[in-house]
């Protein structure tokens, strides 16, 4: 059987086992399409204000209604997908790679490397993570890059510790010792023999962590540390809409909030699905 066919069967198997994964993939596709073609899909310019249609409730003209400046909420929600997902994905990828590298070194070599990396992670963990992220953005300045950096740093211990633990248990396993007998030095042992076997578990963690990263980036914007208005971003939109909770203009915060919830939900489901798909013991 060819590799492609095997993979196809595995994917089919994973979906057959878990219909919810299919739902998650569908949501992800919608989100990705929005992120890729948001500006083209949006019915209005997300920045265009319309003083004649301020605070209009959802209607045929504005499906999600408009905000206090008369901007179309649907367009803003759709266009924001790129920024929100982009920030979260970049942050997760960065902390995944850096955390894996640091954790692998700490777990495999132990000793001084382990102690130094361990203390570094303890230091990060010693802060309330969101406060730390706020501090980083406040110190470095309000920019997309700094939000990514802050989210990356607060997630780093999570990946690093996970990778360290996984590497540590595998270091003494028969196949790793066999790889050393087979002439592999430390780096090839890690790269070829250990890391491929911990990647599936790491991917699951990353997917579960993704939802959290989205919330974190949006949260920074929500409290005003991060992306600045009028840029369309779910966190800012919820924050702007929040002031209308009492007056009952629910659409201003419900739709961006729902987008956030949907994205988080989607990545959490995806994590579970991935676990089934990537587990080598389930490969046929």
């Amino acid at each position: 059987m060819s590799r492609a066919a095997t993979l196809g069967r595995n994917i089919g198997h994973a979906f057959g086992e878990n219909r919810l994964t299919l739902v998650a993939v569908a949501i992800l596709l919608v989100l990705l399409v929005c992120a890729a073609f948001g500006t083209a899909l949006a019915p209005y310019d997300p920045l265009m204000t319309d003083s004649t249609a301020k605070m209009s409730p959802p209607s045929g003209l504005h499906l999600f209604g408009t905000d206090a400046l008369g901007r179309d909420i649907l367009s803003r929600v759709v266009v924001a997908a790129r920024l929100d997902l982009g920030m979260a994905i970049s942050a997760v990828v960065l902390s995944f790679v850096l955390g894996l590298a640091l954790g692998a070194v700490a777990g495999y070599f132990g000793g001084w490397a382990d102690r130094i990396i361990g203390r570094l992670m303890d230091t990060i963990m010693a802060f309330p993570l969101f406060v730390l992220a706020m501090g980083i953005v406040a110190a470095l300045g309000n920019s997309v890059l700094n939000i990514i950096l802050a989210t990356m740093i607060i997630n780093l211990p999570f990946y690093c510790r996970f990778a360290r633990g996984e590497v540590n248990v595998r270091r003494e396993m028969g196949y790793v010792e066999a790889a050393r007998m087979g002439g592999n030095r430390a780096l090839p042992v890690l790269v070829n023999h250990i890391i491929p076997n911990i990647l599936p578990a790491m991917m699951v963690q990353a997917s579960l962590n993704m939802g959290w990263a989205i919330l974190n980036a949006a949260g920074l914007s929500f409290i005003g540390l991060g992306v600045r208005p009028p840029t369309p971003e779910w966190g800012i939109m919820v924050s702007e809409g929040a002031s209308f909770i009492i007056s009952g203009e629910w659409w201003t915060f419900v739709f961006p909030g729902a987008a956030l919830v949907l994205a988080v939900f989607c990545f959490n489901l995806l994590g579970d699905g991935l676990r089934d798909l990537l587990d080598p013991r389930r490969r046929v």
């Binding site: 396993m173 028969g174 010792e177 066999a178 023999h193 076997n197 080598p280 013991r281």
Partner: peptide, 24 residues
Amino acid sequence: VTMPDRARIQVVFQDPSESLNPSF
């Protein structure tokens, strides 16, 4: 590990299921 003599001593490990790389 990188010396030619490395090939001259080899080990067959105890648990055959744990001593094979599951992704190989």
